[in-house]
Design a protein around this nucleic acid. Structure first.
Length: 884
DNA sequence: TTGTTCACG
DNA sequence: ACGTACGTGAACAAT
């Protein structure tokens, strides 16, 4: 077998690697802050090549600076290029080190480009009977392809390559590799900045090369061309074309100081590579070699002083802003015990288990001071926890959890140590590491262990403040943090602490009735099945329906038969048991989640439910609600809706008041797409689903819209917002896929702005790796360029949905902050209780209802200025059920 | 802990 | 040919 020679175009691969990973450039840095994306990508490419190609000799060629024989000949050669970014230039020395550790030679020659080194060695290889593989990111090198030399050009990224052999060049362009030079001479090269012949591009150049064979032959026989503008240009630019040919020609006889015999490849230098990976922080490469990354464990120890009743005066030594952390071991900070606290200024850290000390003057005054700034982790938890101790935490400046969430919604741990690690800060372990997990989790009995952990937490908050603020500023997210999310934290804390009154007796009465009905249906099901079984078990239910009763299988899940509603609905006419199961499910859900579930979380002290809003969880900027979830209380079905009767005002003579945005997501869509038709429909105050039906079904302005048409149009509108597929739409509205496809096509024809927005947004996401809302809330989409169709498609749908859902979330957040301020300013007794994505629920004395009826819609619809109006509808009633 | 189902916007 | 609408939380069964 012939010997093999590997030649790599170092500069072009490094550039490719760098720009391929450009959108995650800040993710690839080592602990010293060195950018490593290009180094990483280079090694990725190298490993990929060496999987299939086993060279006997190998070399990586680099350019040796700007000045080459080409620039001497033509001073504009490669002119006009942007300056290489600092983040890339700093990586070159390390790429060379990597090349060496990988067992390859590197070489550069003053006055010549990497191409010329490669061209010369490839020629030497051909002569010596080698099979040569050239790896490059630059298509120009394909001119070197020959019977024994293949040129691999990286496509997208660095591991996806296209192999150019003479046959492949012939197939693609219909010319020989050497003729690529002639083609380039005629057409020029914008990236290398030489012009070629005026008005001659790739198409014309190819035609001419195919006809005449070479530039020289073309000019020798120029008279054969018919009179034309092109001919004039050719004649005029003859000198240019000939000069460009020299520029485009890669040298095959550069005066190299090395030869093939100097390039023997004997494999990688394992020890050097491991050391190199350690310094670069390349975990995955180390893992391949079964070596773990040595974590930098050299964290400076943190010093702290235990605070007691006797040395409380030490608090007065704290100067300037302070970092503070109140430790609550349970996630639910409304009820969690307190385990201790830490407070300090970056120099001094004061710690204690005795949280009653916080009530003492020096600490209470400090925490309530409006002039001393506080830095914390999870401000909402701290506000609520301290409130339980009778302290009103004021002047919060930095919330590590909140800032981290805004910077990247994907890293959404609630653990301080974990969050710190996501920002490359290693100075604090996770709670799990210190407190244990599961049943073993406990606050350490050893003071030193607990105090050290608390002090480390406070230090992390303090040290991460500046870098995270800087990153927010870089992302243009400072106003989002300062004007929206941080003020919202206090609004949410107040809502949670206020809580909502729930009448336990109402729930219990409903519960007993449901229990009876459930027992009844249960017996009917057992009778129909001919045996008793656990109806709640999908496995047992599947067995009964599809094996014992032999009903047709409509859909399967990973683990067995699907018994979901849409499946059961299709089976309803086959056996009465199906309808009974649907009934059972509906009632069992109400009973377990909404009767017993809610009864469990009513606080006995005030008969109220205090949910927690998670402000740093969702990928879109919405809130979520837990312990319990008050954002999914039943409303759609009449039986479930009755649950809302239990939600009552907390004072006699008060009422429940609610306002919601009407079609806010579609209005946001109209705003950000700028679609004229959609905007017009909203400005005219139309029933948007009806007007959509009118457009996509091509109905006249006065035609009657029947309910079915409106229903279909509504489904299309939802589909557009969610990232539609014809299949999905067809499923939902029970039409054929072809019909669904036509509906979508009609929609895009009628609303071209929407179509353009979708395409532009996906393109933006592919280029930048993230999408944004109207307030610069950001969501990264790592899968947007994934190879897997499913993953990529999902990322594309979220790319277009997130700005819409997220901007709607931004709008209501702004409204909530303004609303809370208005209630305070007007000294109203009304309280904001709940937020349900597009709806705000209040309780208020009856006499304030007329005020709210004007005020709330006015605040909500003016929260932001869109180029379509926002519409708000209000209802009022004695309970949450009775709203009218 | 994971999967399924179902409640909401 | 791929496999299907976005964002959530809770209960329950089975591993």
């Amino acid at each position: 077998m012939a010997k093999q020679l590997l030649l790599i175009d170092g500069n072009s691969i490094v550039f490719r690697a760098f720009f391929a990973m450009h959108n995650q450039i800040d993710k690839f840095t080592n602990k010293d802050g060195l950018h490593t994306a290009a180094i990483y990508g280079f090694k990725l490419m190298l490993d990929h090549v060496l999987e299939n190609f086993h060279p006997d000799a190998a070399l990586v060629a680099f350019d040796a600076g700007k000045v080459t024989f080409r620039t001497k000949m033509y001073s504009d050669y490669k002119g006009g290029r942007n300056k290489t970014p600092e983040e890339l230039t700093e990586q070159f020395p390390y790429v060379r080190e990597l090349v060496k550790a990988s067992g390859l030679y590197s070489y550069e020659l003053k006055g010549y480009e990497a191409d010329d080194i490669i061209g010369t060695l490839a020629k030497e290889g051909d002569a010596a009977g080698y099979e040569t593989l050239i790896v490059t990111g630059d298509r120009d090198l394909t001119q070197l392809a020959s019977d024994h030399t293949t040129v691999a050009v990286t496509h997208k990224g660095v591991t996806d390559t296209e192999h150019y052999t003479p046959e492949h060049v012939e197939e693609k362009l219909g010319i020989t590799p050497a003729q690529i030079i002639d083609m380039k001479a005629l057409m020029g090269d914008t990236s290398d900045n030489y012009p070629g012949v005026t008005k001659v591009g790739e198409k014309t150049a190819l035609k001419l090369v195919k006809r005449f064979g070479s530039v020289e032959n073309l000019y020798d026989n120029i008279d054969e061309l018919k009179k034309s503008k092109m001919k004039e240009h050719l004649i005029e630019d003859e000198a240019v074309a000939k000069q460009c040919k020299t520029l485009a020609t890669i040298l095959r006889d550069a005066p190299l100081a090395i030869g093939l015999r100097d390039l023997q490849y004997t494999g990688e230098q394992t020890a050097e590579l491991v050391d190199f990976y350690q310094r670069m922080g390349f975990k995955s490469f180390l893992a391949k070699m079964d070596v773990a990354l040595e974590e930098d464990k050299t964290v400076a120890p943190v010093e702290f002083t235990e605070l007691t009743a006797d040395n409380l005066a030490m608090v007065d030594q704290l100067t300037g802003e302070v970092s503070f952390f109140l430790e609550m071991p349970d996630a639910n900070y409304h009820t969690s015990p307190f385990a201790g606290f830490v407070v300090g200024d970056g120099q001094t850290w004061l710690v204690s288990r005795d949280t009653d000390l916080l009530k003492e003057a020096p600490l209470k005054d400090l925490l309530e001071s409006t002039t001393v700034a506080k830095n914390v982790f999870n401000a909402k938890a701290q506000i609520v926890g301290l409130h339980r101790l009778g302290i009103d935490l004021q002047n919060i400046d930095f919330d590590l959890l909140l800032a981290s969430y805004l910077l990247n919604t994907n890293d959404n741990s609630n653990d301080l140590g974990q969050v710190a690690l996501e920002h490359d800060y290693h100075g604090v372990p996770t709670d799990e590491e210190v407190y244990g997990k599961g049943a073993k989790r406990a606050i350490p009995a050893d003071d030193q262990v607990l105090f050290n952990h608390l002090a480390q937490k406070a230090r992390a908050i303090s040290e991460l403040k500046d870098p995270l603020f800087d990153q927010l500023a870089t992302n243009q997210q400072t106003p989002l943090y300062t004007d929206i999310e941080l003020p919202l934290t206090r609004v949410l804390a107040t809502m949670e602490m206020t809580g909502v009154r729930v009448n336990a007796q109402t729930l219990k009465d409903m519960g007993s009735k449901l229990t009876e009905r459930l027992a009844d249906i249960e017996q009917q099901i057992y009778a129909a099945a001919g045996e008793e079984f656990n109806i709640n078990s999908t496995k047992q239910l599947g067995h009964i329906l599809f094996e014992k009763l032999k009903l047709p299988v409509i859909k399967k899940t990973k683990t067995g038969y699907s018994t979901a509603v849409d499946v059961l609905e299709k089976l309803a006419d086959q056996s009465p048991i199906v309808e009974q199961i649907l009934q059972y499910r509906q009632i069992a859900k109400l009973q377990s989640t909404y009767i017993t579930g809610l009864l469990k979380v009513i606080h006995s002290s005030d008969q109220k439910i205090h949910t927690r809003y998670l402000q740093t969880l969702t990928q879109t900027g919405r809130l979520s609600s837990v312990d319990p979830n008050l954002q999914n209380i039943p409303v759609r079905l009449p039986e479930g809706r009755l649950i809302r009767k239990a939600f009552v005002p907390s004072h006699d003579g008060w009422q429940i008041f609610s306002s919601d945005y009407s079609q806010v997501e579609l209005r946001v869509l109209a705003h950000i797409t700028g679609d004229k038709n959609l905007q017009e429909d909203f400005k005219n105050g139309e029933d948007i689903h009806a007007s959509t039906a009118r457009r996509i079904f091509h109905l006249g302005p006065d035609a009657e819209i029947d309910r079915n048409m409106r229903r279909r149009a509504k489904a299309v509108n939802f589909g557009i917002v969610y990232g539609i597929s014809d299949y999905g739409l067809a499923q939902r509205i029970h039409v054929t896929r072809a019909q669904a496809h036509e509906f979508i096509q009609n929609y895009f024809k009628e609303f071209p702005g929407v179509k353009k927005y979708i395409d532009d947004t996906i393109a933006f996401a592919k280029e930048h790796g993230y999408v944004e809302t109207i307030t610069h809330r950001r969501r990264y989409l790592p899968d947007i360029n994934a190879k897997s169709f499913t993953r990529r498609s999902f990322a594309e749908r979220t790319a277009m949905n997130t700005p819409i859902q997220g901007s709607a979330a931004d709008i209501i957040k702004i409204a909530m902050i303004r609303m809370q301020a208005e209630l305070k300013k007007r000294q109203l007794k009304a309280q904001m209780l709940l937020q349900i994505h597009d709806e705000l629920v209040f309780e208020a004395p009856a006499e304030e209802i007329p005020v709210l009826e004007k005020l709330v819609p006015q605040v909500m619809d003016s929260a932001v200025k869109l180029n379509v109006p926002l519409k708000v509808e209000s209802k009022v009633g004695a309970t949450w059920y009775d709203l009218k």
